[in-house]
């Protein structure tokens, strides 16, 4: 059973989606380490090290995702877990921006998968199973 770290990054208190993801990924057979809301980059990384997680799933619902997520990949590399899978999803930017450039921006930041608003958990679960090579 693969361990994944889940949390809502930055000064973001949106708790409901986080609980839904926790439930859905647990049901799908993952060992979910849920850090909840108001999670810093450092907390994500420390949790991933201690639990030997294979992926970090970052949520951001309040529009400040870009600034909160910047540098996360570099910090993982610095902490010795540079190969870990990084997923991000939610309302990543303020306003109704075109999706493609937003996705590219986060991919360039080092995220492996970027999910737009309204993505169903099943989609993320399928993608993660594929990326991890588990069924």
């Amino acid at each position: 059973m693969a361990t994944i770290v889940l949390g809502v990054i930055g000064s973001d208190v949106h708790a409901i989606g986080n609980r839904i993801l926790d439930y859905a990924f647990t049901e799908a057979g993952f060992n979910v380490v849920n850090l909840g809301v108001l999670t810093t980059q450092k907390e994500f990384i420390q949790a991933a090290i201690e639990t030997d997680a294979r992926a970090i799933l970052v949520s951001s619902l309040y529009g400040h995702g870009e600034i909160d997520c910047r540098g996360l990949r570099e910090m993982c590399i610095e902490a010795g877990i540079g190969d870990i899978l990084l997923y991000v999803g939610g309302n990543l930017v303020v306003g109704k921006q075109e999706w493609e450039p937003v996705r590219d921006k986060f991919l360039k930041m080092g995220f492996d998968q970027v999910f737009p608003p309204g993505t169903m958990p099943a989609e993320g679960i399928a993608m993660l199973k594929q990326d991890l090579g588990v069924s």
Binding site: M1, T3, N31, I49, E50, T51, D52
Partner: peptide
């Protein structure tokens, strides 16, 4: 060191 099932190395 490590949670149960976590880092062993």
């Amino acid at each position: 060191g490590g949670t149960d099932g976590g880092n062993k190395k």
